[in-house]
Design a protein around this nucleic acid. Structure first.
Length: 201
DNA sequence: TGCCAGGCCCTCTTTAGGGCCTT
């Protein structure tokens, strides 16, 4: 599969607006199942981190006071990602924040997002649930650090993505794996996944 | 004042409701 960028945001809430913004971003570049490059930064968007979120992520208001501005970080990470296809766990969440934070620096996303949550629901139906941590344990993938920090979660999602790619090759006989295939597969009804994948054998 | 995410996915469904998943 071509190089893909696996992304994870920490934020102050669930949906971006004037008081709900990103606090940290991490991106890892995955090539042939291996992480080959990393970008990670806290980002100061000038909003207050609620106590609940400080507790959840460990990212405090004090930490963000000395962090680079959200604008500067987004310029850097947008340069780092370029037009590399994107992946995230529950991508609809990260896509909202990626598009919102990019929009604030007058940039537009050029590539699609694939979603490891939607793919795992189709390819790992026996998992107890499809939370990132549960899937990591279920598939016996390495622990990557403190959950709910951007780099640990991005690495977990990248390891999961590599595992899903292995499953597609070994269990479904897919020969040519591409980001485009993943984007199509994540929309196929679960019951029709095997039938859909026959065209890629 | 009152609002307070939203797309996916299952089912006791489709003229709907509610759990899952992300912070």
């Amino acid at each position: 599969m071509e190089r893909i960028a696996v992304i994870d945001f920490e934020t102050t809430g669930l949906s971006p607006n004037s008081s709900c913004r990103a606090t940290e971003i991490a991106v890892v570049m995955l090539e042939n199942g291996r992480i080959v490059e990393r970008y990670q930064s806290l980002m100061n968007a000038g909003v207050r981190v609620p106590a609940f979120i400080e507790q959840l992520t460990g990212i405090s208001n004090a930490m963000l006071r000395t962090a680079p501005s959200a604008e500067r970080v987004m310029e850097e990470v947008n340069e780092f990602v370029g037009c590399t296809p994107l992946v995230a766990h529950n991508a609809s969440f990260d896509q909202k924040f990626w598009d919102f934070e990019l929009g604030r620096i007058k940039r537009t996303r050029l590539q699609n997002f694939a979603c490891s949550l939607l793919l795992a629901r189709r390819l790992m139906p026996a998992a107890p649930n499809h939370k990132l941590g549960t899937l990591t344990t279920f598939a016996r993938l390495p622990h990557t650090g403190q959950a709910h920090r951007a780099m640990a979660d991005a690495e977990m999602a990248a390891n999961l993505m590599a595992h899903l790619a292995d499953e597609l090759r070994s269990k479904h006989g897919v020969r040519e794996l591409s980001h485009d295939l993943l984007c199509k597969l994540q929309k196929v009804p679960a019951a029709k996944v095997s039938e859909h994948l026959q065209r890629y054998r």
